[in-house]
């Protein structure tokens, strides 16, 4: 029984990380109406930057703050110089440009940090285990769940309660009208892109002490983010949350039952949802 509780908590932690990745993808898609194929690569870069930050400063907390901000800045520059040039082109071209960005980031990471994976340890204060009766759970993993939940609430507040969020939601419906009503949509686009990608970077930082950093993990992460948004419904905050948790739990619980097939089952779950609900659980037609 404890094993299943352990795996369920693992699944929730993993699911929260998947949520952070997918919610960025979803927000960007909603407003900018294009899929960022470099999302997985930015996750990877976030993890590597946190590794360097930990090596340089020796402090995980500094890395946790600096790395996502740097990712957001890089994404902002990327949007200002490159991505904005392809907004008027068909989807296909936008996908290809971000695919190009993904390849460049991945190969840069390998050039800088080498082809062999890296590992960072959790901060000293969270190295222990949490104990409840005869049940033990690593503190860092609990921290990830809590921290990601706080970020999720902040993102929700940002989208739902602030003027910025209102603009993003309005822009998702009709960016042109928002622009006509006097909003500087170019700036809105860059900030949203930076925010969404920054969340992927944050996910990379949070996951690094648990899963390690592997240079070719970008496409896998991208694939999982796609599964999450296909299951949850694209453009939906709730969809990203429920989809992320569902995928995380399926993957984690399957690890106990059928370890080799754990990754396979995620995609099985996706195919199943597509058959029953082509627009995802929370998607609109």
């Amino acid at each position: 029984m404890n094993l299943y509780l352990f795996q369920a908590l693992n699944g929730i932690g993993l699911g929260m990380i998947y949520f952070l990745i997918s919610v960025g993808l979803t927000i960007i898609f909603g407003l900018l109406n294009f899929v960022n194929f470099a999302h997985g690569a930015f996750y990877l870069l976030g993890a590597y930057l946190s590794y360097t930050a930990v090596v340089v400063t020796g402090n995980y907390w500094v890395a946790l703050i600096i790395a996502p901000i740097m990712i957001a800045l890089i994404a902002w520059v990327c949007e200002r110089t490159l991505i904005k040039r392809v907004y008027h082109l068909p989807h296909t071209y936008q996908i290809l440009v971000t695919l190009g960005v993904a390849l460049i980031i991945q190969e840069l990471c390998v050039s800088i940090w080498g082809p062999i994976g890296k590992h960072i340890s959790p901060p000293d204060s969270l190295k222990g285990v949490f104990q409840l009766g005869d049940f033990f759970y690593p503190q860092y993993r609990l921290f990830v769940i809590g921290f990601a939940a706080v970020v999720a609430i902040l993102v929700w507040l940002l989208l739902d309660k602030t003027k910025f969020g209102a603009l993003v939601r309005a822009g998702s419906e009709d960016a042109e009208t928002v622009s006509l009503l006097g909003t500087h949509t170019h700036r809105l686009f860059s900030i949203t892109f930076a925010l969404g990608v920054g969340l992927a970077g944050l996910a990379g930082v949070l996951a690094a002490p648990i899963r390690g950093i592997h240079p070719f993990v970008g496409p896998e992460i991208l694939g999982i983010a796609f599964v999450v948004v296909v299951i949850g419904g694209m453009g939906s905050f709730t969809g990203a949350l429920v989809g992320g948790l569902l995928v995380g739990l399926v993957q984690s619980l399957m690890t106990t039952i059928w370890p080799q097939g754990a990754s396979l089952m995620i995609y099985g779950a996706m195919a199943f949802v597509i058959l029953l609900r082509p627009y995802g659980l929370f998607g609109r037609a």
Partner: peptide, 18 residues
């Protein structure tokens, strides 16, 4: 092909991973 546009692209990618 039950979905079009971007969803179609994402589905093909997910099936490749599968």
């Amino acid at each position: 092909i039950r979905r079009t546009g971007i969803y179609f692209v994402m589905l093909t990618l997910a099936f490749t991973q599968m």
